[in-house]
Structures are given as structure tokens and as C-alpha cells.
Design a protein around this nucleic acid. Sequence first.
DNA 1: CGAAGCTGATAATGCGCATTAGTAGCGCGG
DNA 2: CCGCGCTACTAATGCGCATTATCAGCTTCG
Lengths: 324, 324
Amino acid sequence: MAGVSQTTVSLVLNNRADSEVRIAPETRERVLRVIRETGYVADPVARRLADRRNRILGVFTYEAVFPAASADFYHPFLVGIEECAEEAGCDLLLFTSGKAHGGRRRIFSEDSRVRLADGCVLLGRTIDRDDLARLIAERIPFVSVGRRDDAGGPVPYVGADYPPAVRELAERVVARGHRRLAYVGAGEGAESYADRMRGFREATAALGVEGVHLREPRLEDVLAAGVTAVFVEESADGVTLVQAARERGMSVPADLSVLALGALTRPVHIDIDFSGFRIPRREMGHRAVELLTQVLERGGTPQELLACEPVEGSTLAAPSGATR
Amino acid sequence: MAGVSQTTVSLVLNNRADSEVRIAPETRERVLRVIRETGYVADPVARRLADRRNRILGVFTYEAVFPAASADFYHPFLVGIEECAEEAGCDLLLFTSGKAHGGRRRIFSEDSRVRLADGCVLLGRTIDRDDLARLIAERIPFVSVGRRDDAGGPVPYVGADYPPAVRELAERVVARGHRRLAYVGAGEGAESYADRMRGFREATAALGVEGVHLREPRLEDVLAAGVTAVFVEESADGVTLVQAARERGMSVPADLSVLALGALTRPVHIDIDFSGFRIPRREMGHRAVELLTQVLERGGTPQELLACEPVEGSTLAAPSGATR
DNA sequence: CGAAGCTGATAATGCGCATTAGTAGCGCGG
DNA sequence: CCGCGCTACTAATGCGCATTATCAGCTTCG
């Protein structure tokens, strides 16, 4: 329509004005006019095929992203991710098609589309080690939200810095007079759990107080252990304990302090203002995309830990028989 | 690696067993083995370029999808969309890159990527008419969530059926003894607003009662109009009115009934159990994707309205001076 | 006045796949 | 022993773009 070759259109479209390439102003204008009139837009697919870049960032989650179940937990990450993607002028591709394979989503499924994106962000409490190893081996650019142990090589991530957060929390707790603390939760499995547990162990050791590990949120166990403050890995467990305590006529935090370590991945009606700390979820999502774009441009394997913000809350008090 | 041509690999990969194509079992097995060993996956981009189909559905929203502001409102739609996309084995592409152009996102921006997806779902209270017209003109498959007026042709959509919902609600209200009702809100601009208003007008006419239209949620205006029941287009306005009424010493619903017409697009701390109806948001999202896949296969311009479910709530009562 | 230099554009190529049009190899009938 | 019909593959082509190499037309300079 403009009487020029496809090459010229491509040149004009991409606004190439290098010294290498020259386009007469009038020709350029003519092409632009036709583009405006027809509203032509280059097919992003072909574009991507040709220049191996499409400004699409993939987002892979092991759990469904939206479903109410874990929505409250994942939502903030996504807010950060979308925020940064918009700033970077990228679209987001949600890998929702990875049919649950054996009850669990896998990145590399039958007909994986990971490669469609320039790179991707991984979200989830745990991520399949084999998938991680393969991402690294195949040099697919990605950044994990949440620290990950090496998987056949260092994994790029943006995590929450749990150990210091748990330590500081423990200091606050011990400063209130508590001497026997408990950690409730698995303390392993996911890196985030292991990190919390590590912080707990380090803290009790450094502060010279007792540290008990209980896998299940059973109040009897807590009481039997003579513990006055409980660190719950999952806030949902905290809710369980608080309710059990109240039913038993105990008062929180007067008779038992409960500290939440940030996570709330299980759906639960919660109206308890837990003392503990806040995982900087939005910031993590945002930073993950930032690092991903950086990886795409310059490569590398960035690893960052973001600090958790202490939350005063109302479930921490001095132990009942405290003698300051 | 398998000693066969690219064509053969393609054939095996796509599991083509037509009568047209034949592959010796042993050859097929050999290729499959190599595929398993190397973990090869076909590049979805090239695939899309070659067969013009990539099982990616675009989602365009005029407001940011996740941000807390309107999150509570859009979230349910997305839940439904993701749900159905997963069932259909499609990935979702969120067009987040449509930089706010004049404060508002546009589908066809500088470098639009709409075409990357097989088709797309549109979300938002209002959608630019020109964008709609262009989608139709360019035959880009799409389905709008929310009814839309024609835009140079019929628009495919899944909407909420407001008129009957508002009428039924009005009947409940009138049955309680109310004779002077008010509609608070724009009543125009977006189709969803116009539809509510239409239902309101039809209802008051059919029921033979007074129907006042107030654009702003000002309690004085409501009282001045001698109205006993208010239909609020936006729940946020309902909150405003209820608070104003309470500050004035009035009781809701004893002194004033407030009916919410489903929408809550503005962020507001709400703990009022409004009487009114529920927009089937999740269902709309789900159905939109369903229709989109249908359009992709067979074409057409489906238009559907889903019923709103009545919500009993606690802001509807007989008017104070009711004489049944 | 011919060659070198520059300008402004184009033909050709490749990206990784699906698809179409063949084409070897082989058994079999005549 | 030639040709026909099958089977089981492969060569070639196109998708829509970015990129590279190339080229035609003009200036300018010696």
C-alpha cells in the first residue's frame, strides 16, 4: 500500500534509526500513514519467532492462582508481579493449563509452554526439584518467588528473610519473660518452613532458652511441654490453637502467647490480630519481575532476601507467672 | 538423533495416525524415546505461527486486575475464567502492558499484542467503543464479560440479567409496603448501569409506585424526596448512605431500607449485609471462556444473560409508618 | 570522466514448526 | 521384467517477521 518492501515497513515499525539504516523522512511518513490508517500491528508471534523475544513473562503457580482457597495468600504476590510487569511493558502469561499431574502441577508437562514466555516467575510453597533442575539445565530464564535450595545449580530467587525475622521475634518474646518456646509446624519440606525452623533453633540457642518442636497444633502437647509462647509456622494452626485455648477457658495472650510466622496458605476465617511478622509479599512479586527482566538482559543468577516487617499484634504478652 | 526427518518428528509429536499418514511402530517408538530422553518440547511460538492456534486466551481488563482497589470486585470473574481455562487446557495471557493511555487502558495500543492469543475475554465496567468496533471489524474472536451495546455490529457477551433482578427486588420492596423508591447512581454510562436503571423504571411503572432518580448518594436528597427505600447502583454509595443515616440517628432498615444492586467496584470497608441481589461473577467468567472456545471452533456471536441471585440481607424492612 | 562514497531501499535468509507434495523401496500381477 | 499400488518416509514450502547482504542511483573527488 505504501509502495515499499516488507523490510522497509519492518524498519519503520521498529523505529530503527541507526547509522546502519536510513529511511527517507517522506518514505517513513508514508509508511506510518498507512499503518495508522489500517491500524496494522505486527503479529507478535512471528515477531517472537524471528527475534526470540516477546515481552511476555510467564507466571507459574503450583496451586491455582485465583481460587479463593489460597487467594488471600497469593494475591499480594500477584499484585506486585502485575505492577512491575506493567512498568516493564510486559504481558503476563499464566500457566493455567498444566493439568494437575498426579494431583500436582508440573512445569514441564506433556505439551509445555514455558518456552513461550521470555522468562518466568515461579510461585508456590514448594516447587518440584526436577522441574527446577531442568529449568536451569535448559537455561530457561526464571526467578523464583521464595528461596530455593540448589537444584543441580543455584536457583535465582527473591525470598523472605525468615531466620532474622524469627530471631528478632524470639528476642521480643524472650524479653517479655518467656523461657520455654515451641515451634509448631513441619519445619521442613518447603525451604520457607526450614528457614523459619532454622531461625527458631538459632534464636533459642543464642538466647539460651528452651525450644520445643511440635508437628501438630495440639493444645495438649503445648501444655504438656510447659510452653508459654508458641511460634506457628502456619497462621491457620495459630487459629486452631487459640480456639482450643479459649474453649479450655484460657486467655490469649494472658495465658498463652501465639506468634504467627507470616504464612497463611490455608483458607481459614481469621479475625485474630496475631503478633509476629509480615512477609513482604507484594514487594517480593515486584522484585521478582525486576530481577527477571535483569536476567533476560544481562543473565546471572540473582538471589535476594527481603526483610519481614515485625507486627505488634495482640497475641503476645508476658507469661502468666512472669517474674520479670 | 533418531535418524529421521523433522517431518517425522512432527508427525509423531502430534500423534497423527490418520489414514493419510503412516509411521512404522518401531520408528515411532524410536522417536518417542529420543523425545523422552532429551525432554524435547515443540516451541509453542513456532507452532502458533505455523498452524495459527496456540491455546492461549487473552484477558483484557481496563483496570489493573490484581490491585486491591477493585480486587474484590474482579477477583470472582477471574476465578471463573481461570477455572474454565484450566478445564479447556488453555493458558491465560493477561494484557498488563497496555500502558494507561490518557489515564485509560486501550486494547489497541502502540504495540498491541491482542493477536497473540487465539481469542480474548474483555473485563471492565465500560469498554471503549472504538476498541470493540475494531475487534469486530478485524474479526478477532472475543467475548465480553458484561452486556455491551452494539458497536458497529453485535458484541458477543455474557452479562448479568439486571432488569428482571431489579424488578423482582422492587416487587419485594413494594410488597413490604414501600411506595416511594429512589435509584441512586448514574443510571447510564456503562451498560450495566443503564440496565439497572431500565429495570428500575420498568418496575416502578408496572407496580404503580413513585421512582425517583438521584445521581449522588446524599441523604438530604433522599429524605427531601420522601423516599423510604433506596436502590443503590454502587454498594459503596449504600455504605455512604447507611453511615449518614446512622449519624443522623436513623436506623437502617427500620427508618430507611437500602437495596444493593450487586456492584462494588470502589474499594470500601464494608460490613453491611445489604439486601439486594448477587451478580453471578464466577459463573460469568466461566461461561465467557466457555463461549470463547465455542466461538473459536464454530464462530458466531453468542449473547447470554445470567440471572442474579436474590440476597435476603438485613437492610430491607417495612417503611416506618407502614399500614400494610 | 571514471571510481569511490554515500544514500535509500530491496531481495534473500532464517526462526521452528505444520503441511503438502512428492519419492524411494517393495511385493505382486501380467 | 516392467509397471502398478502400497507403505513409510522425506524434501520443500509457508507462516510473518527481523536481519543481513546486496544493489541501484547519485554525488563528489581526483
